[in-house]
């Protein structure tokens, strides 16, 4: 049976089982969208500001930082809806 065209993650280029993100960045995107409500409650900041603040923190996970870099550079916020 011919192999399907491999799908690549938009963030890292790795194989993605489904959608536009690989497992790692899909998990990170989910955490990122879920985390916004706590920052909004604490500082009443916009989503864009939230991304910048989270990017600065040392506690933030590597995959989260990678997807933030992609979103900020590409201005592709819709990718964060790819949370499986």
């Amino acid at each position: 049976m011919p192999k399907q065209q491999a799908k690549k993650c938009l963030v890292c280029g790795s194989y993605s089982e489904e959608g536009l993100l690989c497992f790692k960045h899909r998990t990170a995107a989910k955490s990122l969208t879920e985390g916004y409500k706590y920052w909004k409650e604490a500082f009443n900041i916009s989503f864009n500001e939230y991304l910048k603040e989270v990017r600065k923190r040392s506690e933030t996970g590597t995959w989260v930082k990678e997807i933030i870099d992609y979103v900020i550079t590409s201005n592709d916020f819709n990718i964060l809806l790819e949370t499986g």
Binding site: G61, W63, V64
Partner: peptide, 8 residues
């Protein structure tokens, strides 16, 4: 750890 988003 890698998908962690800290909460303030």
């Amino acid at each position: 750890i890698n998908s962690y988003v800290p909460k303030p």
